[in-house]
């Protein structure tokens, strides 16, 4: 994308090379597009697009491989961390990441993410948590909040029978193989800027070979929450952030040194 910039002007916007120029299938108001864009900007800035391999999940972002301009595989539900392990182990010079939702990562794929993290696999996971199963039409997710109404918890999630929402960022932080885990959000502009920094640090952690890295991103699903996009952002700020506090849950000294440019 070579653009001639006149001497008296400055380039302030361009379309990331790591994204394809197609219209996505995401609902109006969905935050997947924002997260895609952040990842693409980071991969561009790191100059690694041509050696990056992504793994798409089962869920709303199942077609992510059409939107990222790089090699991509489509995993079975929950198995992206196992696929990423296979790819990275035979291609250690590549940059590998999984893009997963809450049902994919925190329910059906719990074993795969915990063991990949525990082995300190050198790939990065972007975990989009919107507290619901989007693609199948709004069922209860492992991260659905207590009392939250979904099509499979019509009277609200009852923690006595359905258990509690799982805090994956805290859970994985316990594992020695994990170098960097953080929970961010894309609920407003300052949060989006912070989320981008976290995504960049996660990929830098991988490039430096420091261990497993994951960025959990609190997100919305206005369609299945039955809200307008703006209401959904407000609802998430009011309710999700309380249960899923933002911030780093694990940062090894080596990652901190990397962050501080030491």
């Amino acid at each position: 994308m070579a653009v001639e910039i006149p001497e008296d002007m400055e380039l302030v916007y361009s379309y990331p090379e790591s994204l394809t120029k197609v219209r996505t299938h995401y609902c109006p108001g969905c935050t997947h597009g924002v997260v895609h864009r952040l990842i693409a900007e980071v991969l561009d800035e790191l100059g690694v697009r041509e050696r990056t391999i992504g793994i798409a999940p089962v869920g709303c972002s199942v077609l992510a491989y059409y939107y990222f301009n790089m090699d991509f595989a489509e995993a079975a539900h929950g198995r992206a961390p196992a696929m990423a392990t296979g790819i990275k182990r035979v291609s250690p010079d590549k940059v590998v990441f999984t893009y997963q939702g809450d049902g994919d990562l925190a329910a059906i794929g719990t074993a795969e993410i915990i063991h990949a993290a525990n082995r300190g696999e050198l790939f990065t996971t972007i975990f989009v948590n919107n507290a619901i199963y989007g693609m199948t039409g709004g069922q209860m997710a492992p991260t659905t909040l207590p009392g939250q109404v979904t099509t499979s918890s019509p009277t609200g999630r009852n923690v006595q029978t359905a258990g509690w929402p799982i805090r994956m960022a805290e859970l994985l932080a316990e594992l020695p193989g994990v170098a960097y885990v953080t929970r961010q959000s894309v609920l407003d502009v300052p949060a989006i800027r912070k989320a981008k920094k976290a995504i960049k640090l996660a990929f830098q952690t991988q490039l430096a070979g420091l261990g497993f890295s994951m960025v959990e991103i609190l997100s919305t699903c206005n369609t299945n929450w039955h809200m307008t996009p703006v209401e959904a952002l407000e609802w998430a700020k009011e309710h999700m952030v309380d249960y899923f506090p933002l911030g780093d849950t694990k940062m090894t000294d080596a990652v901190r040194a990397l962050k501080e440019g030491k």
Partner: peptide, 26 residues
């Protein structure tokens, strides 16, 4: 070469799937 004892057969076959996608003999 690569040897990995996986956490389950479900994981093993998906690791195989990944490595095969990457073009390795697996």
């Amino acid at each position: 070469r690569v040897f990995l004892q996986a956490e389950s057969e479900v994981a093993s076959i998906n690791m195989v799937y990944g490595a095969a996608c990457a073009g390795a003999r697996v």
